[in-house]
Amino acid sequence: MPVPKLRLHRYAWPVVFGLFSGIATAGPFELEPLPYDSSALEPYIDQQTMEIHHGRHHRAYVANLNAQVENYPELRDMSLEEIMPMISRFNMAVRDNAGGHYNHKLFWDVMAPAGHGGEPSAELLAAIERDFGSLQAMQALVNRAAATRFGSGWAWLIVTAEGKLAVTSTPNQDNPLMDIVPDQGVPILGIDVWEHAYYLAYQNRRGAYLDFWWNVVNWDSVSRRYAEAMNP
């Protein structure tokens, strides 16, 4: 009788890797699988970048956040959305890693394979045209915020407390939900401009990455996030 070949589901491999590399994510916060195959965003974002970005960078944020539960037991019962508005109460490790976890979860969610991201909802498009003039004008503002973010960070499209749309950027793993950020709001779209997000495919050409990024934007997700931010 043939010996059955050991086959691991592809999502099991990061778990195995995590166990042997000492960065298993055991704890209340979990790394969820990508919502699509790691090659699904090609040619705009390559498979290797996605695998390392999700399987190593995002995994490390989750593991490092779980390691902080020892210092802050209250984290065990808090959602990421509850942590952010009181991030000033925690140390830098929580700020960096809770931010990194939240931001990457959002990033995977606001992308989709090219041609499968839908269109902005009528409500979102109306708000974009009201606040920026046109969809293209909003995209240009986001790209400019992303291109001029010196060092590592993010560019955001947010809904402000007044219900307006605005474009902002934050350094490192900060985000607009955090109480320490000057321009606060609910992010409905974010672009990662840490070099690890684009270096293997685009190297120093951040502008090319930003131009191509809009081919994989998930408007269905951004529209849903807009509706939720307007009707919390």
Binding site: I52, R56, H57, A60, G151, S152, W194, E195, H196, Y199, L200, Q203, N204
Partner: peptide, 12 residues
Amino acid sequence: VWEHAYYVDYRN
């Protein structure tokens, strides 16, 4: 220690 200094050779 910018990522561009080591990403090609060492990734993360």
